[in-house]
Measured scan of single mutants.
Amino acid sequence: EESQDIKALQKELEQFAKLLKQKRITLGYTQADVGLTLGVLFGKVFSQTTICRFEALQLSFKNMCKLRPLLQKWVEEAD
């Protein structure tokens, strides 16, 4: 059922947002740094506010889903 899928996805997004924040802090990056690095990787800079709202799960579900693969890549590249 679709609502189950969405619930599962939301849970996954929550966990990912936590992971992103932990990783960012561990590596000593600011939210603005992450936004700028996305610009380098994908040619589209994201504001500190956007990263902040992603981490706080304050973006729309659709936006969270759109941003996630980009931030996933950041997490992979950041090591």
Rank of each mutant, 00 (worst) to 15 (best):
Lys44Leu: 00
Glu1Gly: 13
Met64Ile: 00
Ala32Glu: 11
Glu14Asp: 03
Gly43Met: 02
Leu41Met: 13
Asp33Ala: 03
Gly28Cys: 02
Gln48Trp: 09
Gln4Gly: 11
Lys11Trp: 09
Ala32Leu: 01
Thr26Asn: 15
Gly28Ile: 04
Ala8Val: 13
Phe46Ser: 03
Glu1Leu: 10
Phe42Met: 03
Lys44Pro: 07
Lys21Ala: 05
Gly39His: 05
Val40Ala: 15
Ala17Arg: 01
Leu9Tyr: 09
Lys21Gln: 09
Phe61Leu: 12
Ala32Lys: 14
Ala56Cys: 10
Leu71Met: 08
Leu20Met: 04
Val45Pro: 13
Ile51Val: 04
Asp5Thr: 09
Phe61Glu: 01
Glu55Gln: 04
Asp79Ala: 01
Val34Lys: 12
Gln15Gly: 12
Lys66Phe: 12
Glu1Lys: 11
Phe54Lys: 02
Gln22Arg: 10
Leu41Gly: 00
Phe54Glu: 01
Ile6Thr: 14
Thr49Val: 07
Gln58Arg: 07
Leu13Phe: 09
Thr37Met: 13
Ala32His: 04
Leu19Lys: 15
Lys7Pro: 10
Tyr29Arg: 06
Tyr29Trp: 04
Lys62Glu: 12
Gln58Trp: 09
Leu38Lys: 03
Leu36Glu: 14
Val75Trp: 01
Thr49Cys: 03
Leu71Glu: 06
Leu67Ala: 03
Lys11Asn: 12
Glu14Asn: 00
Glu55Lys: 04
Leu36Asn: 14
Leu59Gly: 05
Gly43Lys: 04
Arg68Pro: 01
Gln48Thr: 02
Phe61Asp: 02
Met64Gly: 02
Val75Tyr: 06
Gln15Arg: 09
Gln31Asp: 10
Val75Asp: 05
Leu67Gln: 01
Lys73Met: 01
Leu70Tyr: 15
Phe54Pro: 01
Arg53Ser: 04
Ile25Thr: 03
Lys73Arg: 10
Tyr29Leu: 11
Leu19Thr: 04
Lys18Asp: 04
Thr37His: 14
Leu13Asn: 08
Lys73Glu: 03
Ile6Gln: 13
Leu59Asp: 03
Ser47Thr: 09
Leu20Trp: 01
Lys11Val: 08
Glu77His: 14
Phe42Ile: 04
Met64Thr: 04
Leu41Asp: 08
Cys65Trp: 07
Pro69Thr: 02
Lys62His: 09
Lys44Val: 05
Ala78Pro: 03
Lys23Arg: 13
Leu57Trp: 06
Lys18Trp: 09
Thr50Ala: 07
Ile25Tyr: 15
Val75Gly: 02
Asp79Trp: 00
Asp79Ser: 06
Lys21Tyr: 03
Leu41Val: 07
Ile51Ala: 00
Phe54Cys: 04
Lys11Ile: 13
Gln58Ala: 04
Phe16Glu: 05
Thr37Arg: 15
Leu57Ala: 03
Gly28Ala: 00
Cys65Ser: 05
Val75Glu: 06
Leu19Gly: 11
Lys7Thr: 09
Gly39Arg: 07
Ile51Glu: 03
Ala8Pro: 15
Leu57Gly: 13
Gln58Asp: 11
Lys73Cys: 05
Gly28Phe: 00
Gln31Glu: 15
Met64Cys: 01
Ile25Lys: 10
Leu20Ile: 09
Lys66His: 14
Leu57Gln: 13
Gln31Ile: 03
Lys23Phe: 00
Lys44Arg: 13
Ala56Trp: 01
Lys21Thr: 01
Leu9Phe: 07
Phe42Ala: 12
Ala78Asn: 01
Cys65Met: 11
Val40Ser: 11
Thr30Lys: 01
Arg68Met: 03
Phe46Met: 12
Ala78Trp: 00
Glu12Pro: 04
Glu12Leu: 07
Asp5Lys: 08
Met64Phe: 01
Leu70Glu: 00
Leu27Pro: 07
Cys65Gly: 02
Ser3Gly: 14
Ala78Gln: 13
Phe54Ala: 00
Phe54Tyr: 04
Glu12Thr: 05
Tyr29Thr: 01
Leu57Thr: 06
Ile6Lys: 15
Lys7Met: 07
Asp33Asn: 00
Phe46Ala: 09
Leu59Lys: 05
Gly39Val: 00
Leu71Ser: 00
Phe54Gly: 02
Ala8Met: 07
Leu36Thr: 15
Thr50Val: 12
Gly35Ser: 14
Asp33Pro: 08
Val75His: 11
Leu71Gly: 04
Ala32Gln: 09
Ala56Pro: 06
Leu57Ser: 07
Lys7Glu: 11
Asn63Leu: 06
Phe42Gly: 10
Thr30Met: 03
Gln58Val: 04
Leu20Arg: 07
Phe16Pro: 12
Gln72Lys: 11
Phe61Trp: 11
Lys18Thr: 13
Glu1Val: 05
Lys44Tyr: 04
Gln58Pro: 00
Cys65Ala: 06
Glu77Tyr: 13
Thr49Asn: 10
Thr30Phe: 03
Trp74Cys: 04
Leu13Tyr: 03
Thr50Leu: 02
Arg24Thr: 03
Lys21Val: 06
Lys7Asp: 13
Phe61Asn: 07
Leu67Arg: 03
Phe16Ser: 00
Gln72Leu: 07
Glu2Gly: 14
Gly35Phe: 03
Ser47Arg: 04
Arg53Lys: 12
Leu67Tyr: 02
Leu67Glu: 07
Gly28Trp: 01
Gly43Ala: 07
Gly39Glu: 04
Arg68Ser: 03
Gly35Met: 01
Gln72Glu: 15
Lys44Glu: 12
Val40Pro: 05
Asp33Arg: 11
Gln10Arg: 14
Gln15Thr: 07
Ser47Gly: 04
Lys7His: 09
Thr30Ala: 02
Gly43Pro: 07
Leu13Arg: 00
Val75Pro: 09
Thr50Asn: 02
Leu41Arg: 06
Glu12Met: 06
Thr50Lys: 02
Leu9Pro: 14
Phe54Leu: 04
Gln72Phe: 03
Gly28Ser: 01
Ser3Arg: 10
Val45Thr: 12
Leu36Tyr: 11
Leu57Met: 14
Phe54Asp: 05
Cys52Met: 15
Gln10Ile: 06
Thr37Trp: 14
Lys7Arg: 10
Phe54Trp: 01
Leu38Asp: 01
Leu38His: 07
Lys18Arg: 08
Gln48Cys: 03
Met64Arg: 00
Asp5Ser: 09
Lys66Asp: 04
Val45Ala: 14
Arg24Trp: 00
Val75Ile: 13
Ala17Val: 09
Ser60Tyr: 00
Val45Asp: 07
Asp5Glu: 06
Glu1Phe: 14
Glu12Asn: 00
Phe54Asn: 03
Val34Gly: 04
Gln31Cys: 15
Ser60Val: 00
Arg53Thr: 06
Gly39Met: 00
Ser3Pro: 00
Val75Arg: 02
Gln48Arg: 13
Cys65Arg: 09
Glu76Ser: 09
Asn63Gly: 07
Gln10Leu: 08
Gln10Thr: 09
Val34Thr: 01
Phe61Cys: 05
Thr49Ile: 00
Phe16Gly: 04
Thr50Cys: 07
Asp33Trp: 03
Gly28Val: 01
Gln10His: 07
Ser47Pro: 12
Thr50Glu: 14
Lys18Ala: 12
Leu38Gly: 01
Ala56Val: 04
Val75Cys: 06
Thr30Asp: 02
Tyr29His: 14
Phe46Trp: 05
Thr49Met: 07
Gln22Phe: 15
Ala78Val: 14
Ala78Thr: 12
Glu12Ile: 10
Ile25Glu: 08
Pro69Ile: 00
Leu71Ala: 04
Lys73Phe: 03
Leu13Pro: 07
Val34Cys: 00
Leu36Asp: 13
Glu14Arg: 13
Phe46Glu: 07
Cys65Pro: 13
Tyr29Ser: 01
Gln15Cys: 08
Ser3Leu: 14
Ala56Leu: 08
Leu9Ser: 14
Leu13Cys: 01
Lys66Val: 06
Glu76Asn: 14
Leu13Met: 12
Glu76Gln: 09
